[in-house]
Design a protein around this nucleic acid. Structure first.
Length: 476
RNA sequence: GGCCCGUUGGAGAAGCGGUUUAACUCACUAGCCUUUCACGCUAGCAUGCGCGGGUUCGAAUCCCGCACGGGUCACCA
């Protein structure tokens, strides 16, 4: 069987982590099995469509490293790939269903429907089913929707790739609308028709679609189409176990937000692949290519996947460590520039800064925080640092000696600075922690930080001398 | 409320009836490394698999009931 899978976004918003996950798994599945990955645009909700929705989502997909074989920009013989361009198909099949008695025109107005629903609610019914009021109505010259006539006492069961056998009873589903009054199909109808016409072999989607499946099966069966194999992936939930939504606290959930904060596409790809799936391995850090090789649909999980920001940071950190210095600089520079940090600095300085901080970076934007923490913030001695200095005999002498040496240096680079520190140590009899810690404190005010000589060089002679003087003042 | 799905440590998660004394990863803790921090390495971290029954020589793994959590019930997708 030819593997053909699809990702079917609706251009009603931005690329959400949940949609990205659906796209990613379909992509992995297709690539793993040498099949085709299709992106179909489901734009049948005319009122909610956003102008830039399609292009925004597609470009973010590309950014993530997900490409496709067929879509609106790549004809594959079963197009068009935008549902509004396929209306004739839906109308054709809807008419066919009416003719065969499996669907009927419904002339009820919104007000009438609303009244029916209220009535049913008042009567305490569990199910709100359309009462087939228009089933035998003669054709009239009035706007109408088309409803699918749900078969009586029919069992709709399917072997889900992830959930095993899932069963629904037709009694639980009322006659639903397949074509809206505006002549546009509803989601479940268009989706079923397109999956069939586009020869989709497997449908991998979120579990929130599981109750849509019986409706789609009805359409497929009624029209004599072959059913694809379905696989419903667990929902992505927040820390509280709820489906990720706008209300899920401070969790970032749109792909663009991760991109803007300096997360790497390959790290996000890695992270998303772990949402509801686990590799048969003792590691979790993988490149997209390695994930394609390792992907195995049998290892898809059936229980909810918790969005764990800590894990995302860890994975992104790991991927950043694997970056070449030039790549890390490219990742960080925009954030430094937008903060004005690079204004009076040359490229070599920026390169050295990134080189020094790369190993502690979780995401690109963090370079700014680290810069401020170690280089910029107002110079004050932390309590612990002040106490350490006060308790170190000869600290003042050492700093005074070092200050002179730093002033005299021809070139203010890390090597020369390191030599100066060592010489100062020799001259004053200080070494090891007794030597480096007072220097670190005098220069940064803190007990911890990046490699000292390199940091001093980056800080620049003027700032360093000022800080040493200020520290010396507090020692008197 | 009806229907559907799920429930393994602080978190993700492996496990598919018997070499499981419950992998692996994150977080956390301790130690090592290092001038400090970070990185890296090592070790520790569920007497227990929502609860109660049952099937079986044997169950986290199969069955039933209950509880809890979630999803879904649109002329939205």
């Amino acid at each position: 069987m030819d593997v053909r899978v699809r990702y079917a976004p609706s251009p009603t918003g931005y690329l959400h982590i949940g949609n990205a996950r659906t796209a990613l798994f379909n992509y992995l599945f297709a690539r793993r099995h040498g099949g085709s990955f299709i992106v179909r645009i489901e734009d049948t909700d005319v009122a909610r469509n956003v102008d830039t929705g399609v292009e925004d989502q597609l470009s973010l997909l590309r950014w993530l490293g997900i490409d496709w074989d067929e879509s609106i920009d790549k004809e594959g013989g079963v197009g068009p790939y935008r549902q509004l361009d396929r209306l004739e198909w839906y109308r054709h099949y809807a008419e066919a269903l009416i003719e065969s008695g499996m669907a009927y025109r419904c002339y009820c107005t919104d007000e009438e429907l609303e009244a029916i629903k209220r009535e049913q609610e008042a009567s305490g019914a569990d199910r709100f089913h359309y009462p087939r009021r228009c089933l035998d109505k003669p054709e009239q010259d009035a706007p109408y929707a088309i409803r699918f006539k749900v078969p009586d006492a029919t069992r709709y069961a399917f072997d889900d790739l992830i959930k095993d056998t899932v069963t629904f009873q037709s009694e639980d589903i009322g006659d639903w609308v397949i074509m809206k009054r505006n002549g546009i199909p509803t989601y479940n109808f268009a989706c079923a028709i397109d999956d069939a016409l586009m020869k989709i072999s497997h449908v991998l989607r979120g579990e929130d679609h599981i109750t849509n499946t019986p409706r789609q099966l009805m359409v497929l069966d009624a029209l004599g189409f072959k059913r694809p194999i379905y696989g419903h992936m667990p929902l992505i939930v927040d820390k509280d176990g709820r489906k990720l939504s706008k209300r899920s606290g401070s969790v970032l959930q749109y792909i663009s937000q991760f991109k803007e904060r300096g997360f790497l596409p390959e790290a996000l790809f890695n992270f998303i692949a772990l949402l509801g799936w686990s590799p048969d391995a003792k590691a979790e850090v993988f490149t997209p290519g390695a994930l394609v090789e390792r992907f195995d649909e049998n290892r898809l999980s059936g229980s909810p996947a918790t969005f764990d920001a800590g894990k995302l940071h860890y994975l992104n950190h790991q991927h950043i460590q694997r970056l070449e210095l030039d790549e890390a600089v490219a990742l960080c520079r925009p954030f430094l520039e937008s903060e004005g940090i690079t204004e009076d600095k040359d490229p070599a300085w920026v390169r050295e800064l990134v080189s020094l901080l790369q190993e502690r970076l979780d995401y690109g934007a963090e370079i700014v925080d680290l810069y401020h923490a170690f280089f910029k913030g107002p110079f004050t001695l932390e309590t612990e640092a002040r106490e350490f200095l006060a308790a170190t005999d000869g600290a003042a002498t050492l700093l005074g000696d070092l200050k002179g040496r730093l002033q005299a240096l021809d070139t203010f680079d890390a090597d020369a600075i390191k030599q100066a520190i060592k010489q100062a140590g020799k001259a004053t009899g200080m070494k090891g922690k007794q030597l480096f810690m007072p220097v670190r404190i005098a220069i940064s005010g803190r007990m911890k930080g990046p490699d000292l000589p390199r940091m001093i060089s980056l800080l620049g002679r003027e700032t360093v001398l000022q800080r040493v003087s200020k520290t010396l003042d507090t020692l008197e």
